[in-house]
Design a protein around this nucleic acid. Structure first.
Lengths: 203, 203
DNA sequence: GTCTATATGCAGATAGAC
DNA sequence: GTCTATCTGCATATAGAC
């Protein structure tokens, strides 16, 4: 599709993700889309409504297809592997998504409340994921702590990329690329080790 | 101290940390400080300069006292424990600092380049921290991967607090508080387990 | 140092021609 | 649907009195 609305969405996504709601300029979005400001307001009545469309789309992508993963009905180790793989696939193609979603949710947490009202299915999916680690011999004392550690290890490097780039890797882009290339397998190994350790400790 | 400059700094910190550079309003900062806008410009020539002062201060706090930790000269396990403890102490008193610093660094990564030019000591401290895990029998293949996993597990929950609050814990503030209360010891245990696992694997 | 009043510029939004 | 021109309001910043 190459119609005007699509061009606007694409341009708005780029600008909003890069600069946030407050930092974005309608003029810049218009320029990126190759149109003028008035047309933006013709398609989306206001900056806020345009932003809402972009944010909703981003939020959907960011909360991964946890359902499909769980529905696959494998054991916890396999599910973890699949989950990490699916998440990295999304992040590698949208490396700036996490900072965008998380940043805007921090600016306006009330947004989440309304979102949650619509997506009641989401929380029950999370519950299912948690309960996985309390079945089949994985009687984790703290499934939430484990799950959040896992998500932290996956997402945080994408959010903190500028810090990695400049402080850890001193501006060496090759080292940064290498780090992200190896990250998925490292996180998978770590997660499985943590799971195994908790077994040994009879948690 | 209760002079005007201090009042401005305190007010600016609150507003900038909550709303970011673009979202903050000089009027709101003035109101918070109990003065008027003109006085802000009298003390700090522009919004940008006021922001720079706040950001620099925040950045200093956010990059923890890694030096002191390392200088303590203990073994890796002890250093990890001390490091985690020090970091949590900072974060518990400044829970919104990470999102502020990381968010602004993503909006304007060039900021870091100039910062790094000044703080040359910082990168060498990071190097020292890394080399720790390649000595004393901890010949980790990927000290960076380990270090970043550790930092991820510490910081990310603070950044993603709105998501934890609404999606994982369904708005139950008590569960959120309990999670953060237990987080430090959970991360410490996890980090030591990962270190031990890498030993067993002869990495 | 601190205030009120004002200048200046810019961004979001609209009017109206084509 | 798409454009140019314009309105409106607001935010940063300054002028100048006290």
């Amino acid at each position: 599709m190459d119609n005007t609305e699509t061009k606007i969405i694409d341009a708005a996504r780029r600008v909003f993700v890069a600069k946030g709601l407050d930092g974005a300029r309608m003029q810049e979005i218009a320029d990126e889309a190759g149109i003028n400001k008035a047309l933006l307001h013709y398609y989306f009545r206001s900056k806020q409504k345009l932003f809402d469309a972009i944010f909703e789309e981003a939020f959907q992508q960011f909360i991964p297809t946890m359902g499909a993963t769980i529905a696959s009905g494998k054991n916890p180790q396999e599910i973890i592997t699949i989950f990490i793989d699916a998440y990295f696939r999304v992040l590698e193609q949208n490396p700036f998504l996490p900072q965008f979603v998380i940043g805007e949710l921090n600016r306006d947490p009330s947004r989440l409340a309304t979102f949650m009202a619509e997506k009641i299915g989401l929380t029950s999916l999370v519950d299912k994921a948690m309960s996985l680690f309390q079945n089949e011999g994985f009687n984790l004392k703290n499934p939430q702590q484990f799950m959040i550690s896992l998500i932290s290890m996956i997402i945080f490097p994408f959010v903190a990329k500028p810090i990695l780039h400049h402080i850890i890797f001193k501006g060496d882009q090759l080292l940064v690329d290498q780090f992200f290339a190896e990250r998925k397998s490292y996180v998978t190994t770590s997660a499985l080790q943590l799971l195994a350790s908790s077994l040994n400790e009879n948690n």
